[in-house]
């Protein structure tokens, strides 16, 4: 089981990567007026059929061939519902998949947002061929990070996964996320 929301995001995004998405959008919204945290992972991957969509929330359904068990979606669903929040999985074959989970922010069992920077940097640097758009919003303040924007500024020698670029981007993303003064450090 994951112990922070950011680890769940990292795990859910792996499904988008496996579905051959070329664009993955990740939204994290902390809203104190409604006492909710919303997490959304949307991709343009291959999507799921209606039948598989229904089955995907069952931990004993997976596309993996090594073993007949897949826990990623179940972990996030459980983490959201235990706080009184909601979980929704939408998908269309050939169009993509959207996973949305809401959490009651003040619930004692709500996992911390955790290290969102590490999650973003891990996804971005290990999947340089995929574009990521990350939006982190705390009430009315928002930070947006887009790899499309970064790629324009880079070159063959200095790519998204060059260690010195990664170190810079880590500091950059971390500073902006922290400045929104939520708990997502």
């Amino acid at each position: 089981m994951m112990n922070e929301l950011s680890l769940n995001i990292l795990d859910i995004a792996q499904n988008s990567i496996a579905a051959e998405a070329t664009l993955v959008e990740i939204d994290v919204e902390e809203d104190s007026s409604t006492d909710r945290i919303t997490i959304r992972v949307r991709d343009n991957g291959r999507g799921m059929s209606e039948d598989f969509l229904k089955a995907a929330q069952n931990p004993f359904v997976t596309t993996r061939t090594t073993r007949k068990i897949g826990l990623g979606i179940s972990f996030l669903k459980e983490a959201a519902e235990i706080t009184g929040g909601t979980f929704e999985l939408k998908s269309e074959l050939g169009i993509g998949t959207t996973v949305t989970a809401t959490f009651v922010m003040s619930h004692i069992d709500r996992q911390p947002v955790g290290n969102l920077t590490e999650t973003v940097i891990t996804l971005v640097t290990l999947n340089t061929e995929i574009d990521f758009i990350v939006r982190y919003r705390v009430n009315e303040n928002e930070f947006m990070f887009s790899t499309q924007e970064v790629k324009v500024l880079l070159s063959e020698n200095a790519s998204l996964n060059s260690p010195s670029v990664v170190v810079f981007l880590t500091e950059y993303v971390n500073e902006h996320i922290k400045s929104l003064s939520g708990e997502g450090k």
């Binding site: 089981m1 990292l10 826990l71 290290n115 999650t119 891990t122 260690p163």
Partner: peptide
């Protein structure tokens, strides 16, 4: 980086590798 790897701390390892390479 499957669910098992992530749950066990793979993200921290990725970060440690990148930092050390830099």
């Amino acid at each position: 980086m499957a669910t098992c790897g992530i749950a066990a701390g793979a993200r921290t390892i990725i970060n440690a590798v990148t930092a050390e390479l830099a």
